[in-house]
Nucleic acid binder design. Structure first.
Lengths: 136, 136
DNA sequence: CCCAAAGTACGATGCCTGTCAAACTTCGAC
DNA sequence: GTCGAAGTTTGACAGGCATCGTACTTTGGG
């Protein structure tokens, strides 16, 4: 039993009933390449992963934001383990609400999460935060 | 021979090679409920349709913009017939580039909207929304 | 020739959201 | 009980894009 449970506090964030999630919201969640990268990493890992264990090109606070959006879209479930927030794909639940959609998406080649290595640490300097390229 | 052909002008807009289209671009196109509505109507009609024959909650110039985005995302093909611009879904071509994705998307229930203002977009002010005029 | 119909092009505008840094909270370890 | 690690919250900001009206172009018909 954790200290939080002893204290009666629940740090588990609210998860939406998947049947109340709209396709609009799902697409808004998945249109962001960082969020799509999270979903892909989660799917590839086959196990729950802490927020900090993802390879993401954004700051911690931005990452928190992205996890929040994914949770609200019914794509992930989150719970605490110590100070780490663990993440799971809600694969089966989601597929019941949107049959075949997530598998179809995951099956696509997606350049959005491949070229982002070499990011390294210091983002405070000259790095202009290249969002996904959008050459007209 | 049309006047355009006599003059050597080609009003056919450029269509991207579907293999150069990224998943990112496709999702950006389909995240807009108006554009999704266009795709759905096109899919339901089973025939080429003029831009003006769609039931859309936006002005003509905005509609033009949406058709442009869909074309750039490799989802539709456009050609002229008189003063009308006809639109076709590039179903098979697209499915070769993104196998199963479009069918999966079309299979989803789509209120085309979250709780916003009823017809999508980010236009949230109280300006009366002029219904686009339908061609007779 | 002139006009209407169908779209396009062009700015202008306003909302949305992705981004960050800084301050704060919670938890486990020492 | 102190410290660091992991995330969250908050506030600010910048750019993107959906939207509109207006002016313009092209086409076809009287």
């Amino acid at each position: 039993m954790t200290a939080a449970e002893r204290a009666g506090r629940d740090r588990t964030p609210p998860h939406p009933d998947i049947t109340t999630v709209t396709l609009q919201r799902v697409l808004e969640a998945l249109v962001d390449p960082v969020r799509r990268s999270i979903v892909r990493q989660l799917h590839a890992n086959h196990r729950d992963s802490a927020c900090g264990s993802f390879d993401l090109p954004v700051s911690k606070s931005t990452a928190t934001h992205h996890f929040h959006v994914l949770r609200e879209a019914g794509l992930i479930r989150q719970y605490y383990a110590g100070t780490s927030r663990m993440n799971t794909l809600r694969l089966e639940e989601f597929d019941r609400a949107f049959p075949g959609f997530l598998p179809a998406l995951l099956a696509q080649r997606d350049g959005a999460d491949d070229g982002n290595d070499g990011w390294g640490g210091s983002h405070t300097d000259t790095t202009p935060r290249p969002r996904v390229e959008r050459s007209t």
